[in-house]
Amino acid sequence: MNQPYLLLTPGPLSTSAAVKEAMQVDLSTWDQDYLAITEDIRQQLVALAQAKLDTYTTVLLQGSGSYGVEAVLNTVLPKKEQQAYGCLMIAINGAYGKRMAEMADRLQIQHVDLEVPETEPITLEMVQAFFKKHCEITHFAMIHCETTTGILNPIETIFPWIKAQNVTTIVDAMSSFGGIPIDVPTLGIDFLISSANKCIQGVPGFSFVIANCRQLENCQNRSTSVSLDLYAQYISFKEHPGKWRFTSPTHTVLAFQEALHELALEGGIEARHCRYHQNQAALVAGMQSLGYETILPTDYQSPIITTFKMPSDSFDFQTFYNILKRRHFVIYPGKTTKVPSFRIGTIGNVDGTQIATLLETIKTVQQYL
C-alpha cells in the first residue's frame, strides 16, 4: 500500500487506522444497533459541551458544516415575510462569517453585520459598541475559530454578555469543538455548530448542532426548507430515538463513534487541546527558524491552523505544495484577501514527531523554490 498523505489542513484531516476500519461495516438505517449508536453519539456530544440532557440536545444533520450553519439560520431566524420578528447580528472577521451573511441574504433574514479586519479578533468592546447602534438585534452569530487566518475569537467574554441582553446566541465552532474546551451552558450558547471531520477526528458526512432545547422548540414552522429543517430533524430524533429523517451516512457515523472513543482514550478535549497546542507551537518555532513569518500574533492565534506569509515575491506556492505532496504532506493555500500566504493545520491524527519531519522536509526542499 502507498504511504498515505498527512493532511495538515483544518478538515478533512488525517484519521487513525481504527477510524477508517470502522467504516468497513454495512448497516441499515433502521437497524436497532445503528439507532443505538446514533443515540449514544448524540448524548456524548452534549456531555462534551459540558451540558445536561434535560436542557440541551444534539441534532445530527446530513452534509458538511455549512449545511449545519444554514440549517440553524434557516430554522432559528424568522424570515422577512413571516410575522415573527427577528434581526440577526453577524460578527465577521473572515470568509466563514461572510458566508453566514450570504446565507442570511439568500434566506431573506434581516441582518446587520459587524465587520472587522480578518487579522484582528472580534472583541467584546466592538460588539457592545455595535449593539448600542442597533436596538433591533434579537439573534447573534459569530465564528469561534476563523480558519481564514487561524484566529481565535474570544467567545468566553462575548457570549455571556450577549446572552445577558436576552438575545439568542449562535456560534460556528466548526474548527474548534472537540479540540478546544467550550462550556456551552456557562457561556450562554444556544446553538453550537460543528462537523464530524474536524477536531473529533472523524470523516466527512454530517454536521451536528448542540442546541438549547427550549430555544429549539420555539422554532416550529420557521424553516422554509424541507431538508434543512433543524426542528423537524430534532422531532424525529425525539419521537424515534436514533432515527434520522432521511438516509443518513451510516459509514461516517460508525467512524465518528470510533473517533469519540479515541478522544476519550486520549484524555478528552483538554488533552487533545494540549496536543494541538504543542503541535502548533513546534510548527511556528520551526517555520520561524526557516525564515517564515506568521500573519497573526501569538495572543489570538488558535492551535488549529496557522497562516504564514509568502517569504518573497518570487515564492511559488504551487511548486512548494507539489513538492511537499510528493513527500506525503498536504498543506493549504492562503485565504486572506490582503496578504499572500499559505496555511498549515495542526489538528487531526498528528503528533510532534510528524511536525518535526515536516519541518525537516521543508528545510530540505527550500533549495527547489
Results as ranks from 00 to 15, higher is better:
residue 177 F to L: 06
residue 50 Q to M: 11
residue 90 I to V: 15
residue 146 E to T: 08
residue 73 L to G: 09
residue 106 R to I: 02
residue 188 G to Y: 12
residue 290 L to F: 09
residue 114 L to D: 05
residue 182 I to P: 06
residue 37 I to T: 15
residue 279 N to L: 12
residue 227 S to G: 00
residue 252 T to V: 10
residue 145 C to D: 04
residue 131 F to Q: 07
residue 156 E to L: 06
residue 12 P to W: 04
residue 298 T to E: 10
residue 367 Q to M: 02
residue 94 G to L: 04
residue 188 G to S: 11
residue 54 D to E: 15
residue 267 G to V: 12
residue 341 S to P: 05
residue 128 Q to V: 11
residue 290 L to W: 04
residue 135 C to W: 05
residue 233 Q to K: 12
residue 142 M to T: 03
residue 90 I to G: 05
residue 258 E to F: 01
residue 127 V to R: 01
residue 187 L to R: 04
residue 315 F to L: 13
residue 321 Y to V: 01
residue 249 P to K: 05
residue 353 T to E: 15
residue 56 Y to T: 13
residue 180 I to P: 08
residue 174 M to F: 03
residue 196 A to K: 08
residue 262 E to I: 11
residue 216 L to S: 08
residue 216 L to H: 07
residue 1 M to G: 14
residue 250 T to V: 15
residue 153 N to Q: 02
residue 81 E to H: 15
residue 191 F to V: 00
residue 253 V to T: 14
residue 274 C to A: 15
residue 15 T to L: 13
residue 182 I to L: 13
residue 167 V to E: 10
residue 236 S to D: 08
residue 154 P to K: 00
residue 238 K to M: 09
residue 134 H to M: 03
residue 271 A to E: 11
residue 273 H to D: 09
residue 108 Q to C: 08
residue 232 A to S: 14
residue 337 T to I: 12
residue 26 D to V: 12
residue 286 G to H: 12
residue 8 L to S: 15
residue 237 F to H: 08
residue 279 N to P: 13
residue 362 I to V: 15
residue 121 P to F: 04
residue 60 L to E: 02
residue 253 V to K: 01
residue 132 K to P: 00
residue 30 W to S: 13
residue 345 G to S: 07
residue 247 T to A: 14
residue 64 S to W: 03
residue 286 G to C: 13
residue 198 K to N: 06
residue 357 T to F: 06
residue 331 I to K: 04
residue 124 L to E: 09
residue 282 A to R: 10
residue 107 L to H: 05
residue 357 T to Y: 12
residue 263 L to S: 05
residue 75 T to Q: 10
residue 120 E to I: 01
residue 150 G to H: 06
residue 271 A to F: 05
residue 262 E to S: 08
residue 292 Y to W: 10
residue 122 I to G: 07
residue 34 Y to D: 12
residue 184 V to P: 10
residue 367 Q to T: 11
residue 88 L to K: 07
